[in-house]
Simulated assay, not measured.
Amino acid sequence: MLRIKLPHLFDIHQVPKVFQEDSIISGYRHPQSSAMDCIRSSFQMTNETVNIWTHFLPTWYFLWRFCGLCSTVNFLAESYTWPLLVYMLPVCLYPFTSSCAHTFSTMSPATRHICYFFDYGALSLYSLGCAIAYCFYVMPECWVNSWLHQHFVLIAIANTVFCTSMSCYSRFLELQFPHRSKILRTGAFVLPFMFDTIPLFYRLLLCFGGSCNHPEALSSHSYHLLFAFLTCFLFSSHLPERLAPGRFDYIGHSHQLFHVCAVVGTHFQMEAVLADMSSRRAWLAAHSPSSTFLGTLGAFALAVLINLGLIGLFSASLLRESEQSPVGPATPHTLQVSPGNKEE
């Protein structure tokens, strides 16, 4: 009978501090895993398995929706659809990048950081895609052609640079200043989100005041904001595992719930963007300037180049720092495997 030998798992005290997660006691993979071990571990129950699959499977859902849009929307010929294209690209990208980061993050300390650099870069591009879609489809009617509307995408690009820079930099503080690192990383993502949703918050405020135009998408927008709040809360609170360390190591810890809320929120956001794009098209065509290549695809391409440059700089700095004060491979003393730890 064919027997598949799965990678060994370890407890928190058996792995270096850089791999340890708050209130997660068991289920850790070897901190010097090979790429093949990382892939194989995604098919066994570890404390990362659900993290991997809660973003890998939604990637295919978003790709399926994107392919469906490509068959009904003329992205090449209609400039009105370019903001949707720029939005859908990072919607498909960020869960896949996150899944890869969680899969291969135990190859080495340096690889772990670089994996998450790319994860943060993808999330930063997602925030830009949201900003571009909101600028062209969601902006309140009374703000169209205002100073904020005209500079919305430019400010969003600056926010993208800030988000990637601060989130990547926060990993350099993780060991010595974990609380400062967490605050910095949370703020790096909250700031672009708050800026992106300013038009949406104002539209919801108008609706609560009885001046609601084109309300078709507002229920989906509201659900998106609810799940966005839950995503931020779970990311920053480490609940429920903080209340019962070790009880939620494999299923139910905050990062898994954070992934689920993020994906569900993105689904509702996508539905809201599509509804606004459709219901407001005639009004926007008559009152708002047409979307341009530079304001949509050009802005996104520029942000991709900037993000890759930032990730390259932070990765080079990390590798130089590792050479000067390397975090050595786990020693037999720190990684002791008893026969009871073997899983086949």
Rank of each mutant, 00 (worst) to 15 (best):
F96Q: 11
S98T: 10
C100Q: 11
C100G: 08
A101W: 04
T103Q: 02
F104M: 07
F104Y: 12
S105H: 11
S108T: 05
P109R: 08
A110P: 02
T111Y: 05
R112Q: 09
I114D: 01
C115D: 02
C115Q: 00
Y116A: 03
Y116E: 04
F118A: 00
D119S: 08
D119F: 01
D119T: 03
D119P: 03
Y120N: 00
Y120C: 01
A122Q: 04
A122R: 02
A122K: 05
L125R: 09
S127V: 09
L128R: 08
L128N: 04
G129N: 08
G129D: 10
C130T: 14
C130I: 14
A133H: 02
A133D: 08
C135Q: 08
C135Y: 02
F136M: 12
F136W: 11
Y137I: 06
Y137H: 09
V138E: 09
V138T: 12
V138W: 10
M139H: 03
M139W: 01
P140M: 00
E141S: 13
E141P: 07
E141N: 10
C142T: 15
C142I: 10
V144C: 12
S146Q: 12
L148Q: 15
Q150A: 15
V153N: 09
V153I: 14
V153D: 11
I155P: 13
A156I: 06
A156F: 05
A156E: 09
N159H: 11
N159F: 12
N159M: 12
N159G: 07
T160W: 02
V161M: 10
C163D: 01
T164H: 05
T164V: 11
S165F: 15
M166G: 00
M166K: 00
M166A: 07
C168V: 04
C168E: 03
C168F: 00
Y169G: 04
S170P: 03
S170Q: 02
S170C: 09
R171C: 05
L173T: 00
F177D: 13
P178S: 00
H179W: 06
H179G: 04
H179K: 01
S181W: 01
S181F: 00
K182D: 01
K182W: 01
K182S: 06
L184V: 15
L184Q: 15
R185A: 10
R185G: 03
T186I: 14
T186G: 14
G187I: 03
G187N: 08
G187D: 07
V190L: 15
L191R: 05
P192N: 05
P192Y: 03
M194Y: 07
D196W: 05
T197I: 09
I198Q: 12
L200V: 15
R203C: 03
L204V: 09
L205E: 04
L206M: 10
F208E: 13
G209K: 10
G209S: 08
G210V: 07
C212Q: 14
N213Y: 12
H214A: 13
P215Q: 10
